[in-house]
Design a protein around this nucleic acid. Structure first.
Lengths: 207, 207, 207, 207
DNA sequence: AATGAATGAGACTTCATTCAT
DNA sequence: AATGAATGAAGTCTCATTCAT
């Protein structure tokens, strides 16, 4: 009983720390994160951090993993669309873009991070990666289906998935850098992105 | 004579400093650059930097501008291809990608920078931007030509240019984040990128 | 209990720092104060300062305010002398001079400071200032009483107060600049200062 | 011939340096003076200073001496007024105040400087100083005459001179600290200063 | 006569981390 | 469990001065 409560209490403080860190990252970016800022925010002393985390890096890593998972989750619940896989893909990317744009600093922090520990989870460009990356796997399977059905032009599936992904990625990042693009223009860009890409991968007679 | 030599000598030291800074940036990134690291590398005292540069920022800015200009220059000399504008575009992007990948740190420093002073030069997503941005203007004019000739599907020219650009941008940045993609795979990706994009914008009967 | 002790201990270190700073200022002047000198004196590392103070400026400001208040306090408890206001004035100035000479560095730091923030509290020469400055108000009321009683020659009260003050101020500052005037000579100067000034403002038949 | 010209040339550069230093002191105060600022102003290299001056201090000292002399000069040409020595004193102080207020930063730099080298020339409060200080000597002689003629109350001449001086000094410095006192108010203060002081030293029947 | 190069000393400050309590 | 105290390393920058040329 007491032990359970202790554990719960412990978890609670851990979360308080992570919450604060999350807020700071959202505001100042990962490099703006400092132990002091965290402990100031939660009214604890700097030393407390080292009770719950090995070092600053462990916090960052925890958050990065979490961030990655949140982004993944956004596309997890997309419904399969048996006959029109491109709609499925579009739905997934639309959610993904929305999720990313909702926590831009955070998305950047994860996706532009070249720390090996982070990369282990975010790699996408390697040949054969689709076997290891769930994200790419899903994308590949949709594309494969499209090809099988004759809706998509035959192609190297993985490579196509990668290009779809990086293209979307480029749009997202650029939108984040140019913070003040109007809602309207954002939508037009996203829409045209799909137009071009799907036009690029779909069979002539399907469009 | 002596004056000339002095100037050369001076320029030399300046370059020594910039070289060292370039090396450090290549290794540790721009954030990893410090006055001390530079002067340690060149066996001078920290104060000497201020002989040749106003402050650390001037070094960074010099290097960043240099990097940016090198990249821009890469697409300056692309030859017009009257009848096949897509070849022209491909040529330009190919060079652009190569140049970017050669100075990844600078490319990132410029292109991911949301400082207003930098953005003034790098904005691309705004509606109507093609009138102000030389880069986009060139791209638009190529696309327009393609449309006029019936090689490209009629479309919103600017929007299409923006999507071509962001897609390429996404590939570049992702390649930079995943530093260790094999030369071969890089080429396959780039190649497939063009395949998809051009397939996406070109008229049916042209491919 | 433990908390109280901690607070006391903390206050103690804070005071140790302030003491050291006070010593250094007394010896080298405010400009001569440096973080390093302080921490050398108290055998700590420079960083510790920032544990107890926001920055160097906070130390200086603390000390300067303290010095200024000590000086102001000196004239706070002067007893009213209904029938001989000149004695009251003399008493106040005597204490004021003594207090100032006891913290010369701070007195100079405040009184020779033309920073607007400081001036807001130390202005005295403006017309109508006696309504805003407590110091001058007190002085004015004493003089007014003297005039009403016929002991002082009728005059512009505020102007007279200002001249009494600046004259004393001049003596104080000059004494500070010439640090080594003998105790004796200091007293003779102060004494003669009053002789001349009171002779200058008192009615003929009163002296 | 050539040697003479050389000397002249040399003297010229020396003066250029001093001019620049004077300007800087007038603007930024003595502590704002730096070798770099000087050589920037005159378009020379820092090292040149050490050709013409032993070190920075020699420049300061030169300027301080000069400043002192300029101030002295302002009262040098005051006409003697045999029968009304108070007019003579008033004339001298009036010029002195004007001269001081014309180069305030400079006056402060000299008169608030407690460097021994400077003090040697600016001391005034020591007993017996009137034998060494020309300034005080002149003031004493005027006062003495006034006493001899029965216009001034008998008194310790030197002490009186010192008090007249420090009182005026106080007004000057305070006026410098409160930079923005209106021309009008300045005149009223100066005027009242003389009223009080002369009333304070003159014989009853003379006023 | 003049200078460019170079430095050493020192200024303030931030940060992650450790440790005794 | 929690913390206050303390530090060492590192960061940028300024300045007076020296020296070979």
């Amino acid at each position: 009983m007491s032990k359970e409560r202790q554990l719960r209490k412990q978890e609670e403080v851990r979360n308080t720390i992570l919450d604060a860190a999350r807020d700071i990252i959202a505001k100042d970016g990962i490099r703006g994160l400092s132990i002091r800022k965290i402990t100031n925010a939660i009214d604890y002393s700097p030393a407390i951090i080292y009770h719950y985390f090995k070092d600053k890096n462990e916090i960052v890593e925890t958050l990065v993993r979490e961030g990655y998972e949140r982004i993944l989750a956004s596309i997890g619940s997309v419904k399969r669309n048996e006959n029109e896989p491109e709609k499925e893909i579009r739905e997934a990317f639309t959610r993904y873009i929305a999720a990313a744009l909702e926590s831009p600093e955070y998305y950047r922090a994860v996706m532009l991070n070249d720390d090996p520990a982070v990369l282990k989870r975010t790699r996408l460009l390697e040949k054969g990666i689709s076997e290891r990356s769930q994200t790419l796997q899903m994308l590949c399977s949709s594309i494969q289906r499209g090809v099988n059905q004759g809706r998509f032009t035959p192609c190297d599936i993985e490579l196509t998935a990668q290009i779809l992904w990086t293209s979307t990625f480029g749009l997202i990042i650029k939108l984040m850098v140019e913070k003040d693009i109007s809602r309207d223009q954002v939508n037009r860009l996203i829409d045209h992105q799909f137009t071009v890409l799907f036009n690029g991968i779909m069979s002539r007679n399907e469009v």
